[in-house]
Design a protein around this nucleic acid. Structure first.
Lengths: 210, 210
DNA sequence: CTATAACGGAGCGCTCCGCTCCGCAAGGGG
DNA sequence: CCCCTTGCGGAGCGGAGCGCTCCGTTATAG
């Protein structure tokens, strides 16, 4: 039986650890103490550090998972025949699990090759989702993939304050997101100012300053 | 001559301190070290702590100033005869100087009576600005004052990363803000979900949990 | 020239974090 | 049934970094 035995407990711990880390980091910021994650997962520090030899390693794993979830969200969006609904699903999903909440970590951890690959795959796929919406004439023509990505990032910043009013805040944010999505719809009423952000800058933020 | 003498230097230091504190706190977060503020102002720690007996006192002063600037921004908006342009000016001004960047401090410092007064005056005035736009039929009818305030708060979150690409990020945010403002315009294409946030919750975030 | 007032910044005391290490309990082969 | 192995929890170590104080120095006022 897979729910018994030491190895099974280890596997369960691994999952709970990942969930807890996601929860803690996205709500308290990436500089939250590691002990908070262990406590939330109901696991000792020893068990945590046996799986991830350092906090950075844990963050890398978490970022990779987030990127993979973004890829999944885009694919779900592309699966929707309606270009607009597909785009909305993508944005809502990403904001929902806080894909951009780990963005402040940019430049503070080493980015693995696998992370680069997944990230690029995500932006590429998102590009086709946004492109499809643009050609269908439902997305304002002056908005680019990166505008949408940055919008997601902006909206998945963690809510401050005590855990009590987290729900209220989350709900208020959904209203704001609805407003922003309306503003994304074609045709734009006011043209977007300046140049669209460049892909090199967008990716460059993750390069270590060192 | 007012630019010479020890007392004049003291006055100048006071201003530079306030500017530096605003800059540092809004870009690095409210838990930035006090020494960083002193360094940025070109002032010693002693001079800082002679004016503000504690970090909390400095934060209170800063919050009050931010609130006063919000009041000024609303009044400027109301002075504009065009209801929509007035509202846009208000939002742009608040995001511009990062009025909501100090929001994460909510619940961590004591709120003085003067702060309460100024804050309430700001929301009240903003209420009439938003009300005017609503009656003129330029603002979507399901958006409330608090939606707009929270939008401002969301958009004045500090940009992460090294100070290098601060400008790029700021520019990208202006594009996002333009999108959001478009979404605020009447008529809304998708109704806002759920109930509008309540004033009691909005203000309650500043009460100490203790 | 002296008394005074404001200055800069080194450093104290403390909190808190990442990480290690160890005593312990629960499998599972002989 | 025993004992060795494996994974467990958490106390605590070393050190970084913070708020704040205190003092030697310097510039002004009388």
């Amino acid at each position: 039986m897979s729910t018994r035995g030491r190895q099974a407990e280890a596997a369960r711990n691994d999952l709970r650890l990942l969930e807890a880390a996601h929860e803690v980091f996205t709500t308290q910021g990436f500089d939250a103490p590691v002990s908070a994650i262990a406590k939330r997962a109901g696991v000792g520090m020893g068990s945590l550090y046996r799986r991830y030899r350092t906090k950075e390693e844990l963050l890398q794993r978490l970022c990779l998972i987030a990127m993979e979830r973004v890829v999944a969200a885009v694919e779900e969006g592309l699966a929707d025949p309606d270009p607009w609904q597909g785009l909305v699903h993508y944005v809502r999903a990403c904001v929902g699990f806080g894909s951009g909440a780990l963005a402040p970590v940019a430049g503070t951890i080493e980015v693995t090759e696998e992370m680069w690959r997944t990230s690029r795959k995500a932006t590429e796929l998102a590009g086709s989702l946004i492109g499809r919406a643009g050609e269908a004439g439902v997305l304002r023509s002056d908005a680019t993939v990166l505008d949408v990505s940055l919008l997601i990032e902006q909206f998945s910043r963690p809510a401050p304050g005590p855990p009590g009013d987290r729900h209220e805040h989350e709900h208020a944010k959904e209203r704001l997101l609805a407003i922003a999505l309306d503003g994304l719809r074609a045709p734009g009423r006011t043209p977007l100012p300046g140049e669209a952000p460049g892909l090199d800058w967008y990716e460059g933020r993750w390069k270590r300053s060192s």
